[in-house]
Design a binder for these strands. Structure first.
Lengths: 241, 241
DNA sequence: GGCAGTCTAATGTCTAGACATTATTGCGCG
DNA sequence: CGCGCAATAATGTCTAGACATTAGACTGCC
């Protein structure tokens, strides 16, 4: 058993009282001076505990007014974590592999706004135990990521290559449900119109587009799952049987 | 302009160098003693900056070994926020309304494991400008939330009522793609088999199940969207045109 | 009664130290 | 050469103060 630092103990004492409902939103927490006396420690120690709680959004601190239990956010938007395909597959104990189906370098079209003048278009099929798992269509801007032109996407899938070579500063995800269209259905071994989960992901680096990807998952075989508590980010890896 | 505290300035200096790629993952950051000299401040101040960065996952600190730029997390690399239906609709400038289609109190079935002995089953249709937006089927455990038996779910939708009356401590989300089946298709005004986004949400309070809900969105009309940067949580509300 | 200015209670930052903890490094010994 | 132990370099925690900043509370004046 390692001993818990005092500041953490103070923080979790308070967190427990908030979680249990003993201290409801709006309740004014004892002042630092009072907690100092209660725990017999310096104010910096209490202050650190409160700063931590405040950073996690459990309490709101205001000078002179004191510290109160925060009201839960109104737009209590819950979260779902989107795992990396390879670790997702391997996390299920299956063998991961991928096939590069298409690789062309071409000028960008008008509807590919912001992707730079030249880009690579890729199509990759990701397999779990040799069964189609997801079909990925991806554009990579050669303006932002010129090294991509000489990358070997048969060795590493484009998602992994980008993760290692092109850190992004902004991202957007879009999840929707679509029916598998002709080519996609064929590649995934589905009949036409089968409901699929479509995950669209765009990233930018300092305002310049890096990549734009669409991944299509057979609806029956794939769920996005997240399990979490309100004060923590979703950390547990999704598991599906 | 309010002046920036020194510890924040140190932290953002370092953050900038990480974001710019100048300091790549694995790079060893100057020691606290070095930063102390560089900024001419006490070690506590540097330490606080590093503690903040560490809490946000940008760096990894290890005694004796020093502080290095963290490798971007392989798992859970991305998130999507799931907004509250009502604010989602109103955020698009549409009028929100809802209809209670079904409300029965009954004993739980075997496949409704963990939901307590008695529960309420509800079906609610959420509308945006009087057009069907999502169909929600929900179970609420009367063991955990007995007050729900006397709640008026025609006035407030069950999701909103629960948010206000039954705080949860644990939640699970599952997103999948399904084809609209007979009754669901009818209620949403779709033809059979139309791809729909299915959002399943379960919550618990101290280990006891509170609610279990399934929401079905027409695939063509609804996306989950999140836009964010790697160091921050997704805060911006998704917008779809 | 109301308003302006002042007082003051609370948090926010920072310092210069102290000692604890941990893991690496390197040395000496077999 | 390799093993174990000691030295040491780095972070982790904590203290007892100091001064800054903010905003609620009060007071007195009109």
């Amino acid at each position: 058993m390692d001993i818990e630092p005092l500041h953490r103990r103070i923080a979790s004492d308070i967190e427990r009282r908030i979680a249990s409902g003993e201290w409801r939103p709006g309740f004014r927490i004892p002042t630092e001076a009072e907690l100092m006396a209660e725990y017999g420690c310096a104010r910096m120690t209490v202050s650190r505990a409160m700063t931590d709680l405040s950073a996690r959004g459990l309490v709101v601190r205001r000078r002179r007014a004191g510290t109160v239990v925060a009201h839960p956010p109104v737009h209590s938007s819950a979260l779902v974590a989107i795992p990396d395909i390879q670790s997702e597959i391997e996390g299920r104990g299956l063998a991961y592999s991928h096939q590069l189906l298409l690789r062309i370098v071409r000028p960008s079209r008008a509807d590919e706004d912001g992707m730079g003048a030249r880009l690579i278009e890729l199509e990759t099929l990701h397999l779990a135990d040799a069964m189609p798992f997801t079909l990925e269509r991806r554009l990579i801007s050669l303006t932002t990521a010129p090294e991509a032109e000489h990358a070997d996407f048969t060795a590493a899938p484009p998602g992994g290559w980008l993760l290692a070579h092109m850190p992004w500063t902004e991202a957007e995800h879009r999840i929707s449900a679509v029916g598998a269209d002709g080519e996609t259905a064929t590649r995934l071994g589905l009949s036409d119109g089968t409901p699929c989960l479509r995950l669209e992901r765009r990233t930018w680096r300092d305002g310049l587009a890096v990549t734009w990807a669409w991944q299509t998952f057979p609806g029956a075989a794939y769920d996005l799952v997240a399990r979490f508590s309100p004060t923590q980010s979703p950390m547990k890896t999704p598991i599906k049987e």
